[in-house]
Simulated scan of single mutants.
Amino acid sequence: MSYPHSTFFAASEDDTRALARDLAQAMRGLLPASSVIYLEGDLGAGKTTFSRHFIQSLGHTGAVKSPTYTLVEPYELDAVSVYHFDLYRLADPEELEFMGIRDYFSDKTLCLVEWAEKGAGCLASADLVISIAIEGEGRRFQVQAKTLHGSKCLQHCKRI
């Protein structure tokens, strides 16, 4: 089955914030179903920046820290538990099994995963894959649905 995809160019961080807000609003409409989003892109592409705006758009009012050294940062919100993963420093996917990775991908959870390829074989499949590429001073977001759930999210997103 083929699922939709779309692109969005963010000329500024404000544009990235707007895209994150729209995707969060679309995802919020599908809660409490669990969701998995993979974020792809080179170092400095904006994966953590997007994640920060996305998590804050879901209702988190505090700081959103990069989980580069902790591997995961949890955010407990009213309707969902959000887990932000950064697997850049992961040496072996088996480390994820030791930390109980499967427990994070359960009902009423939304998981954002940076560097998902480093956890291959141990992660839940993505509903959405967001690839971010640097283009001049801006960022090109390629958003691809991988499941029916991800497809519904894209259908409800205004910007893409």
Results as ranks from 00 to 15, higher is better:
67 P>S: 08
34 S>W: 08
70 T>Y: 11
109 T>P: 11
64 V>C: 08
133 A>K: 15
104 Y>C: 04
152 K>R: 15
89 R>I: 02
50 F>T: 00
106 S>Y: 08
114 E>H: 12
59 G>N: 06
134 I>F: 12
37 I>G: 05
92 D>T: 00
76 E>H: 13
25 Q>E: 13
120 A>T: 10
40 E>R: 10
134 I>D: 09
57 S>H: 06
40 E>A: 04
15 D>G: 04
99 M>G: 00
12 S>C: 04
42 D>R: 09
85 F>C: 01
105 F>T: 01
120 A>H: 13
160 I>D: 00
56 Q>G: 02
24 A>F: 01
70 T>G: 02
159 R>H: 14
73 E>A: 02
143 V>R: 13
56 Q>M: 09
153 C>T: 12
36 V>P: 09
152 K>H: 14
132 I>W: 15
106 S>F: 06
28 R>A: 14
79 A>W: 11
112 L>T: 05
141 F>P: 06
38 Y>P: 08
72 V>W: 13
91 A>T: 13
127 D>Y: 12
122 C>Q: 13
12 S>R: 11
101 I>E: 07
71 L>I: 14
26 A>H: 10
21 R>D: 05
114 E>L: 08
128 L>G: 07
103 D>H: 07
40 E>T: 00
133 A>S: 14
87 L>G: 03
10 A>D: 06
67 P>Y: 10
14 D>L: 12
145 A>T: 03
148 L>P: 04
54 F>P: 02
8 F>K: 02
20 A>L: 09
138 G>I: 06
18 A>D: 14
6 S>C: 15
135 E>Q: 13
124 A>V: 03
153 C>K: 06
93 P>R: 03
114 E>P: 11
133 A>G: 04
95 E>M: 04
116 A>Q: 10
158 K>L: 09
36 V>D: 03
76 E>S: 11
117 E>P: 07
126 A>F: 08
2 S>I: 10
18 A>I: 09
61 T>Q: 15
3 Y>K: 13
88 Y>P: 07
155 Q>E: 15
39 L>R: 10
23 L>N: 03
124 A>D: 12
94 E>F: 12
60 H>M: 02
72 V>R: 10
